[in-house]
Amino acid sequence: MHFDWQFFWKSLFTPSERFLDGLVLTIVISVVAMVLAILVGLVLALLRRSRFAVLRWCASLYIWAVRGTPLLVQLVIIYTGLAAVGLYQFHDVSLFGLSVKAAIQAAIVGLTINESAYIAEIIRAGLDSVPKGQFEAAESLGMKPAKVMRWIIVPQSLRVMVPPMGNSFNGMMKTTSVLSVIGVSEMFLVTQSISSATFHTFEIFIVAALYYLALTTIWTVIQAEIENRLARQLGINQRVRITQRLLGGRRGPAPAEAQV
């Protein structure tokens, strides 16, 4: 048994169409699920802050149940369990001229449900990081709660939320590999198929690992730029450096108020 370098380099630099389709599907599912998870997580976070105990209890129960069970189990329940008990069955649909398979729909729903529970806690922690006195002071000036949240609370809490949210998205892109259990032809399942057909298991899985690494690295660069832009908007003189984020380099200059 030997390492086939020719197959490795060919798969790395000129991957097959099936592999590229799996790569694109991995990205699309991750982005769509993350956007939906942020929306659902925002609702859950606001419910956790509601003055009504029933709403707080429902949101807390959702977060507790989702965070306490594996994603793999959730996917199986959503895709096959609901159909087995006659509650709901996913079917292929046509959306904007594209055919979206049932398994892909279930994958997006499953990832959204799973990730929204974690996003809700990130948003809640971010909102709680802003001193309550600022909210009370703004209300005393006659600002409505929605405007206080929009113009005062959210801009400050975003800088706290973005790093863990970015890490969650990074993790979710890698977690899409478990979608193969319900038959989604994302990058991992395609890699398994190529491995079975060519018997070049080691080579093709290293290629897949490098592509996952490339995806997470690209997102890390984007995330760092988002954090830096938010810092500039808030007047914070501290930059997130790519070398710091990827290789553990030295931190950027400290905020002006910390240099007194």
Rank of each mutant, 00 (worst) to 15 (best):
I153G: 03
S16I: 07
E136S: 12
G68M: 01
V160A: 10
R18T: 13
Y118L: 11
L98R: 12
L61D: 03
V73P: 06
V35Q: 00
V148I: 11
G249F: 02
Q233H: 14
M149C: 08
N237P: 01
E186N: 10
M143D: 00
F188L: 08
T112I: 11
P70G: 14
I182P: 04
H91I: 11
Q233I: 09
L189W: 04
L36M: 13
I206D: 10
N228Y: 07
L230M: 06
T243S: 11
I222E: 02
S60F: 09
P255G: 05
A117M: 08
A146R: 08
Y118N: 14
H200E: 06
F202S: 13
A117V: 14
L61P: 12
F3H: 12
I194R: 07
K101I: 08
S185L: 05
R150Q: 02
V100S: 07
L82F: 02
F96H: 08
T243Q: 04
A214R: 03
M1N: 05
S195F: 11
F205S: 11
F202H: 08
S16C: 01
I236C: 13
A84V: 00
F202E: 05
R56K: 15
E121I: 05
G235Q: 00
A224D: 00
S180H: 06
V100C: 03
Y62K: 14
W151L: 14
N237G: 09
L36Y: 09
K144V: 15
L47R: 09
G41I: 07
I204W: 07
E186D: 01
T201N: 13
K147M: 14
V40C: 10
S129C: 00
V40W: 04
Q223D: 12
I119D: 07
Q238D: 01
